[in-house]
Design a protein around this nucleic acid. Structure first.
Lengths: 231, 231
DNA sequence: TGAATACAGTTTGTATACAAATGAATAAAT
DNA sequence: ATTTATTCATTTGTATACAAACTGTATTCA
């Protein structure tokens, strides 16, 4: 019944990164974490390496592992890639979904709506994360997955502010509406419709990004990227 | 003067995987490799983990590390993702390239043409690999990169047969032509043109893939069909 | 005979001790 | 006073011994 310690550690780190409880660029301490989780440094470092490979952490030779940065350069790259990848994932999900996966997605969406009703920003954001992660699972494409997951990590981190501050009003319920429509399109195998919904959903997200305040207090006008280009 | 052993090991593994000297699905032996490279198992396993994260190797809990598989399912996913990603990378390369990078790309292309003139299939294939890897570097997008690199790994592995068997005739010189046109488009910052060239180049590649006729019904490792030589 | 199980050998995973590298603080020099 | 060396404490990287898990073979029992 005892869960795998490495798994626990990995999930804890992911949670802390996604919720911004660990700030972008923040240093991690091997010895304190290994003490905390009852693991020696060897397996701990393997978890670090995995998570660095997935985009949660970043590592440099002979330097301490840290939470992956979120710079203005990062955001620029984000906007260049996100619409295309999100749309592709949604189209493939509509193409390759199984019935069991659709049912699972509906359960996750129920959780998301419950979270929206609550005041818990982290719960909202993480539920949203899980929704999109499930669509990626349904897309079932090992080549697209790593890029999508990286985008989703940073999307979730940036969206934190939005989910934390906003009440369950207009834009929130609109996002939830989109999710419901996505489920319908995926379930019906409407590929083009699913792809269009991804774009639509994405355009809604753009508004959230404007509220994001850079942790390292870089005085960047996010608007310039948001107004920017589609592609 | 002594190069980094881990780096050497990593490059050797990548080389063996890309050239099919190690067949897809083939088991790796930790102790023999650690002996061979004068490294203990700890750093060796870290290299394994990195390369598994990049798509060269695959790992499962309590099972030996192996060369990443190439199944019929893999190929299906490959065809779903490749044109879009290749095209996006090429467009971004045209958008973000620096002069130094273009010059570097020209050097790589010279190498490629030299390799085509030779009879060395591995050299041809690896030179082609380096060309496309350089375009990905120029695209300068951390989100797209991991997906592109995974595609390129398998593209190179599948293309091996083509580069090994064909002489420097029609399709080969056509590929080289494409490369030259890509350099021109990227250098001139012609984004749309670069994206179109990627699609065109990709359509040429499809012909190469046709040489690999697999039994559609069997989800077998491609490796056993590919490998022609001992050792 | 055949299935299940127990055992042994091999391989993977973890802990820990030690080596190498880094960065900060201090001392020396121009 | 600023720059350049030097030292030392801290942190990262590696080697190795040991523990846990898997695989194949042999043995037992129906």
């Amino acid at each position: 019944m005892t869960k795998d310690k490495k798994q626990q550690l990995s999930e804890a780190i992911q949670h802390n990164v996604l919720t911004l409880q660990w700030a972008p660029g923040q240093d991690l301490d091997e010895s304190s974490l290994s003490l905390q989780f009852g693991l020696s440094r060897t397996p701990l470092r393997e978890v670090f390496r995995d998570l660095a490979g997935q985009g949660f952490l970043s590592q440099k030779q002979h330097r301490n592992t840290r939470v992956a940065e979120l710079s203005h350069q990062t955001l620029r790259e984000f906007f260049q890639a996100a619409p295309m990848i999100y749309s592709a994932i949604m189209r493939l999900a509509a193409e390759n979904r199984t019935i069991a996966q659709v049912q699972q997605l509906e359960v996750i969406q129920d959780d998301f709506e419950q979270a929206l009703a609550s005041a818990d920003g982290q719960a909202r954001s993480l539920a949203n994360h899980r929704f999109h992660k499930q669509t990626a699972l349904m897309a079932n494409n090992r080549y697209l997955l790593p890029s999508f997951e990286r985008l989703l990590i940073d999307h979730t981190r940036i969206g934190q502010t939005f989910f934390r501050t906003a009440g369950p009003d207009q834009p929130m319920s609109e996002a939830s509406d989109h999710h419901r429509q996505m489920i319908a399109a995926i379930s019906a195998g409407e590929v083009a419709r699913a792809g269009d919904l991804a774009i639509e959903h994405w355009n809604l997200s753009r508004a959230q990004f404007a509220q994001f305040v850079m942790p390292q207090s870089l005085d960047v006008n996010l608007g310039q990227w948001i107004q920017g280009e589609p592609s």
